[in-house]
Every structure is written in structure tokens, then in C-alpha cells.
């Protein structure tokens, strides 16, 4: 499931015109990594929420920029599996 979610996230970033070829799990979503700006983070969050039937709390959304691709993928996978998400 985690692999599928990661593939979905990469697919969405590509659709949003971000260059994510060869991106690794350690890249942060925000500046210094994939470099998603605030609206782009919101866009990605809405796409993931819609795909997996999740809702990110406001405080979660605010932290997305600091998360890595790997952390974000794990959080979504945990939430989908019904486990508590990584909200650190």
C-alpha cells in the first residue's frame, strides 16, 4: 500500500508540473526539497484527501512543508491502514 501511495504522490506532483524524476524519500516537500509553495501543498493535500478519503487537520496541513516525501507517504499509509498517523 505504501508503494502505491508513494506512486500516487509522485504522479500528482508530476501533474502539478513539478520535476520529481528520481526523487528520494528524504526530500522535504517544502523549500530545499520538492519546493512546494503553500498553495501547492494545499493542492497536494486535497488530491490525497480525495483519493484516500482522508481529512488533514489544519495543524497537520501547516506542517506538511517540513515533512519529507517518505514521512508524508508513511503518514498517509498509516492513516489509510487505520493506524495513528505520524503527526510529529
Amino acid at each position: 500500500m505504501r508503494a502505491e501511495i508513494r506512486a500516487f504522490v509522485v504522479e500528482q506532483l508530476t501533474d502539478m508540473n513539478y520535476d520529481v524524476e528520481g526523487i528520494d524519500d528524504d526530500a522535504t516537500l517544502g523549500p530545499a526539497g520538492v519546493d512546494l509553495e503553500s498553495l501547492a501543498l494545499a493542492d497536494l493535500a486535497v488530491r490525497v484527501e480525495d483519493q484516500y478519503g482522508l481529512t488533514f487537520a489544519e495543524e497537520e496541513s501547516e506542517k506538511l512543508a517540513l515533512m519529507t516525501v517518505g514521512e508524508f507517504t508513511t503518514m498517509v499509509a498509516n492513516r489509510v491502514a487505520g493506524a495513528p498517523g505520524d503527526q510529529s
Partner: peptide, 13 residues
Amino acid sequence: ARGRAGVSPYLLT
């Protein structure tokens, strides 16, 4: 067709 997820946060830009 798709609800709120169909609306881009970038629309107004």
C-alpha cells in the same frame, strides 16, 4: 461532478 476536490486552490490565480 467531483465535489470540492475538483476545485484547484490555484483557480483565482
